[in-house]
Simulated scan of single mutants.
Amino acid sequence: MPPTDLVTLDVTRDIALLARRHRAARSVGMQVLNLIGGRAENLLERLPDPVKDQLETATSRALEGALRAAQASRGVIPDQKGWLNTAVTTAMGAMGGAGGLPTALAELPVTTTVLLRAIQGIAAEHGFDPDDPAIQKEALSVFASAGPLADDDGADMAFLTARITLTGATVHGLIARIAPRLATVLGQKLAAQTVPIIGAAAGAATNYAYTSYYQSMAHVHFGLFALAERSGQTREALGAALRDEIRRQIR
């Protein structure tokens, strides 16, 4: 078999694997919605208006702080296994949910930092340097995906080929673009953690879902990035192939 055919087969196989990982990323999120007995689009209505009004600002601050803390910790704390990241954030989610909205708000930036460190660790796992400013922006862009409680697969696709919009963007400018979408996603998390009676359980389940989701999406993002480098194909072309494969698997 000619080498070009082998490359094509490898790319097709890897795209299929990434598509399966992408589709599986939200399965836990749907279980969370079943636990709290709600719909994702209605969760934000459970939050007080002052909290909703400040979500975007709080999200921007959380991302800025997470980036500083994640980078500072890299020389001190090694990257952890995915299961350990999930265990840590699950425990934090339980504590955050146990005290209602005040403790959930206090827990939010800490969880965001752990998630970003996990995403950076996955970048390193795929052969990229998390200290490279371009990879730092790539890691942040994973937060542009729609979140584990969304049901629109197409909403996740923009971040997969985000290299075009990353070009020349400052980290601060990228955070400003990501914050509005992530604010909605994190608002859903906060609302789930404040469900009466089961707040701690909902907080644990929500953080488990969010950590599983963003780690899976990081594997898809950086897996696609690495595949582009190995195959010589553009990320845009591979992103289009991934979209097609996800649709094919859904059918």
Rank of each mutant, 00 (worst) to 15 (best):
T8Y: 04
A19H: 02
R61W: 13
L238M: 04
Y208D: 07
P78D: 14
A58N: 05
Q188C: 01
L108H: 09
A240W: 14
M92P: 02
A162D: 07
V7I: 10
Q120F: 15
A144R: 10
R243G: 09
A98Y: 01
A69D: 15
R68N: 14
L190Y: 00
M1E: 09
N207T: 13
A24K: 15
V88H: 00
V185D: 02
Q54P: 10
T12N: 15
G173K: 02
F143K: 02
G121A: 09
A139H: 08
A19M: 03
L227P: 04
G223N: 09
A16K: 08
A91L: 05
D156F: 14
A69G: 10
L242H: 11
T86V: 13
L174V: 05
P3V: 12
A241N: 03
G99A: 05
M95G: 12
A40D: 00
A241Y: 02
F222Q: 10
D79A: 13
A144P: 06
L47Q: 01
L160N: 01
L17H: 12
G29N: 06
I15Q: 03
G199Q: 04
E45Q: 15
Q188T: 00
P3Q: 07
A118E: 06
T234Q: 02
A69P: 09
S60V: 11
G82N: 04
L9R: 14
H22T: 14
A169G: 10
M30C: 11
V28F: 06
S231G: 07
T167I: 12
A94R: 02
L160R: 01
T89C: 04
D14M: 07
L9C: 12
G168E: 05
R230G: 11
G239E: 01
A158V: 14
A134Y: 12
F159Y: 08
S231Q: 04
A40N: 00
A24L: 15
G96A: 08
N207R: 10
L35S: 01
E245Y: 12
M92V: 09
A98C: 01
F143A: 00
T170W: 12
L116I: 05
K52R: 15
G121P: 07
K189Q: 07
K137W: 01
A139E: 07
A25L: 04
P48R: 04
T167D: 14
V114C: 13
L149V: 07
A150Q: 09
I36H: 03
A158M: 11
R21Y: 03
G154W: 06
Y210H: 13
T161K: 11
H172I: 13
A218G: 06
A118G: 13
S27A: 14
I198V: 05
A123E: 05
D14N: 06
A62S: 09
R177P: 00
L242K: 11
V11L: 14
V195T: 10
I178L: 06
A241H: 03
H219T: 13
S145D: 11
L224C: 02
Q215V: 15
L116N: 03
A162L: 11
L63S: 02
A87N: 08
G99N: 05
A155Q: 11
S231N: 04
F143D: 00
V171E: 12
V110C: 11
E107D: 09
L84T: 11
H172Y: 07
V11I: 15
A106V: 09
I246H: 01
A202Q: 00
E41Q: 07
M92K: 01
L227E: 03
V88A: 03
R243L: 11
M30G: 14
A104P: 15
S73K: 15
M157E: 13
T111V: 14
G199S: 13
